[in-house]
Amino acid sequence: MSTNLTPAQGTRSTDFAQGLAWMGLSMASFIGMSVGSRELAATLSIQQVLFFRALVGLFVILALGRALLPELRGLKMVRLHVLRNVVHFFAQYLWTIGIVLLPLASVFALEFTMPIWVAFFAFLFLKERLTTPRILATIGGFIGVLVIVRPGLGMVDPAAGLVLIAAAGYGLSLILVKQLTREVSPGAIVVWMILIQLPLGFLVSLTDWRPVSFTDIPWMLVAGIGALAAHYCQAQALKRLDASVVMPIDFLRVPMAAVVGYYAYAEAIDLWVFLGGGIILFSNYRAVMAERRAAMAG
């Protein structure tokens, strides 16, 4: 039997390998952004962390985003851009509080309830069907959250609740992005994100402004470039891989974050986080695979 690949098979194989590489860069960027944000929050306020992350992003888009000027001048769907970024900004604010107060692995595990919120908001706003697999994923995700926060075993950290609210905000933001992509390019969406969130970050940072030193600048670059790179690399991965492949790979951020937290901050590796994250992963993976099989059958 010949082992030669057809051109189509060779292209799919190349796309798969490239998609895995982009996904690895995305996960590393997310963790880099988290570490940079935590280090900045040691001397600056959370509001300043968000502002400087966006400020770094502004310099990046000024250098690379000139080709998007004609599209930006059209102000297409600008109201939806504003709504999306206000939601995303406050979700980032709550998420960053979680990064400062909770172990990194716990934050990422709780954040992975986002697919549950995406299914709910898609049903509410986009009129997508809430199928049995999605309902089962919701139940499984809720059980996974209970395993992570373990109510009843001492005082539940309120920061965990803030991260869950942030995950809901990210889910709503993703639905709004999905609506934007019908008429707006991904590059323009990123540029509008910086242009809207930068003044928001500046205004809220004035409520708790603290002195900035030169030693903060490297962490600003890590947090700001990490944030942009994470979203860009994830989009590149999604171009090459199905969401049903990207999502399980993305869950590897939980053990990666646990390792970084262990070596960088001497955080104990909590097996309950891995167990709860695994339940959330399995629930969402089964739901996506079931819907993929149904789509292929159709």
Rank of each mutant, 00 (worst) to 15 (best):
102 L>F: 06
16 F>Q: 09
47 Q>T: 03
134 R>L: 09
113 T>H: 01
104 L>Q: 03
18 Q>H: 07
25 L>S: 15
98 G>Q: 00
55 L>W: 07
89 F>S: 02
82 V>Y: 13
38 R>Q: 10
92 Q>M: 08
114 M>H: 01
33 M>S: 05
60 V>W: 13
100 V>K: 09
47 Q>K: 04
20 L>D: 03
120 F>N: 09
124 L>V: 15
92 Q>A: 14
7 P>G: 10
90 F>N: 05
117 W>A: 15
39 E>N: 02
147 V>H: 09
131 T>Q: 15
86 V>T: 12
25 L>R: 03
96 T>W: 01
31 I>T: 00
102 L>D: 05
72 L>E: 14
54 A>L: 04
104 L>T: 00
62 L>S: 15
128 E>P: 15
53 R>N: 02
49 V>I: 02
124 L>C: 10
81 H>C: 11
36 G>I: 05
42 A>R: 12
44 L>P: 00
44 L>S: 02
94 L>N: 02
61 I>M: 10
120 F>G: 11
53 R>Q: 02
101 L>K: 06
100 V>T: 10
20 L>N: 06
104 L>I: 08
67 A>F: 08
16 F>S: 04
83 L>D: 09
44 L>F: 03
139 I>E: 14
22 W>E: 02
69 L>K: 10
60 V>E: 11
109 A>G: 09
57 G>F: 01
36 G>Q: 00
62 L>N: 05
58 L>A: 14
136 L>Y: 15
94 L>D: 00
24 G>N: 09
61 I>R: 02
95 W>T: 02
118 V>E: 04
147 V>Q: 12
132 T>R: 10
133 P>Q: 08
3 T>H: 13
146 L>S: 15
4 N>A: 13
27 M>T: 04
121 F>A: 10
10 G>V: 05
102 L>I: 00
30 F>P: 00
